[in-house]
Amino acid sequence: METFGRNTIGLAGILAMLIILGLVGGIYWNKTRTMTDRINWEERRADSLLSVKLRLEGDNRDLTSQLELAIDENESLGKRINTLHGQLDQRYALESQFRQQTIVRTRIMQALNRNLSALTMTRDSLENQIEALNNKISWLNNSKGPLLNETKDIQ
């Protein structure tokens, strides 16, 4: 029985070894599978983050390009605004000149109207005086006729 006991103990030892090896192998396989899953998950996450990074870099380039275009447009619009301000200033200056010329012309016209009124009054007065003188001349001519006849009679 000694062989049987040794065989049983040897078999039990081998069985125990196989069970331990199976457990260790299972644990190793489980850990390896878990680590592989974790590594695959991390790689997918890294790929996802890399694609997000690349997309963000592309977006950043697009935005930088848009910003440069906006800056160029802003400069162009600034120059155009400055040009328009210059034109507006010129128009304001011309408007001011026209207003001053209008004021001067209005004053000249008012002075001319006053002079015209004074000259009209003078003309009317002179016409009245001329009419009175003509009347006096007519009267004198009319009265000269009888005086001439009297003068002839007296001579």
Rank of each mutant, 00 (worst) to 15 (best):
L54G: 03
L56R: 15
E57A: 09
E57S: 11
R61H: 09
D62G: 08
Q66D: 06
Q66T: 14
L67W: 14
E68N: 07
L69R: 09
L69Y: 03
L69D: 07
L69E: 02
I71H: 06
E75H: 01
S76A: 09
S76C: 00
G78L: 12
G78H: 05
R80H: 09
R80S: 10
N82E: 12
T83C: 00
T83V: 01
L88Q: 10
D89S: 09
Q90C: 04
Y92S: 15
A93F: 01
S96L: 08
S96V: 09
S96F: 02
S96Y: 04
F98C: 07
Q100G: 01
I103V: 04
V104P: 00
R105E: 03
T106R: 15
R107Y: 02
R107K: 10
R107H: 02
R107W: 00
I108Y: 06
M109P: 05
M109H: 14
A111M: 05
N113D: 05
N113F: 01
N115G: 03
A118E: 02
L119C: 01
T122M: 12
L126C: 03
Q129R: 15
Q129E: 13
I130G: 00
A132S: 13
N134W: 02
N135M: 10
N135W: 09
K136E: 13
I137R: 11
S138R: 14
S138Y: 14
W139H: 10
L140T: 11
N141R: 10
N142A: 08
K144S: 11
P146M: 11
P146H: 14
P146T: 08
L147N: 03
